[in-house]
Amino acid sequence: MTVRELVDSGAVKAAALPDGDREIEGVYIGDLLSWVMGRAGSGDAWITIMSNVNIAAVATLADTACIILAEGVQPDDGVTEIAREKNINLLLSDRSAYDTAVWLHERL
């Protein structure tokens, strides 16, 4: 599934979708950035509740397919603009991290 297909499904909203054709190959959940950076795989949908600007750098370095802010968390001021600028897909989910992951698992 591509990131755009995920958005079109209605399960998540797009805050920034500069690279919608990116394929989602897996899922990673984590909030500790050092941990995520080392362990999230390239092409993963990264589910987190961290909303500060450092998630953009971590997503870039780990080469994730998208960031999904779960639990209804909104990005901090300016983060959406940075995501767009850095070609990072930033999505918003009202579901819990677990439910978002389960939803994805059933469709990947």
Binding site: L32, L33, S34, W35, M37, G38, N52, N54, I55
Partner: peptide
């Protein structure tokens, strides 16, 4: 609170 400072920086640098 920003998701850093968990004491993983130097160990990660060594690991990678």
């Amino acid at each position: 609170s920003l998701g850093f400072g968990a004491g993983m920086g130097l160990p990660n640098m060594k690991r990678y």
